[in-house]
């Protein structure tokens, strides 16, 4: 290759790269909005059979939110390393237990954690440390985090699922949702209003 060809190919590569990079930027999405639908993303299935059973998934590698066997799904976007998420963990467990303790809600409302930037080892550590009774899904390459608008953590999204596979976001906010019992009441109210 002559020197000029090499220089031009480097320039072309640089421009192409910036174009590819910027187009990803242009695709940067907003967090799911309340009243809107949940993005049509493929979520990696949890590895444990127990977690798969809880979500009603059978031998799936990836799933859409509409495939979860539930009427309402509460997602927490968290990170093992995030101090607020660590502090929030007992409250989210309490939320799970409140649901689990009510025969009218058990099996209809599911809780799922998405570990932004965490690998499976890290979500497992978080799960053990805080004795978390619901599935935590690693998102080490931040694919889910990007699809959910690169939110700060913890971030809570509640999605009401319709019979026809449609979804409606009824809660989408950063930070602690406060008292678990009041949060559950709020979600039930909003869920009924739809």
């Amino acid at each position: 290759m002559s020197k000029s060809v090499r220089v031009w190919s480097a320039v072309a590569a640089t421009l192409l790269g910036i174009l590819i990079g910027s187009s990803s930027n242009a695709q940067r999405v907003n967090p799911p909005s309340e009243g809107g639908s949940f993005p049509d993303i493929m979520i990696p299935a949890p590895s444990s059979a127990e977690a798969q059973k809880y979500l009603g998934l059978k031998a799936k590698e990836k799933f859409k939110v509409s495939e979860i066997k539930a009427e309402l799904v509460i997602f927490e976007v968290f990170s093992m390393y995030c101090p607020h998420c660590q502090r929030e963990a007992p409250s989210v467990n309490e939320l799970y237990r409140l649901i689990d303790g009510r025969p009218d809600l058990k099996g209809k409302i599911k809780v799922v954690g998405l570990g932004a930037g965490n690998n499976s080892f890290e979500v497992e550590l978080f799960s053990k440390k805080y004795d978390i009774p619901f599935p935590l899904i690693p998102d080490v390459d931040l694919a889910l985090h990007r699809a959910l608008g690169e939110v700060r953590t913890p971030y809570f999204i509640a999605v009401k699922l319709g019979r026809g596979g449609q979804s409606k976001v009824i809660y989408s906010k950063v930070g602690s949702p406060g008292d678990p019992s009041q949060f559950l009441d709020l979600l039930l109210q909003r869920s009924k209003a739809l």
Partner: peptide
């Protein structure tokens, strides 16, 4: 390198 630069906020 350029893709990384272009990605910026991502």
């Amino acid at each position: 390198v350029a893709i990384l630069v272009g990605l910026g906020v991502a």
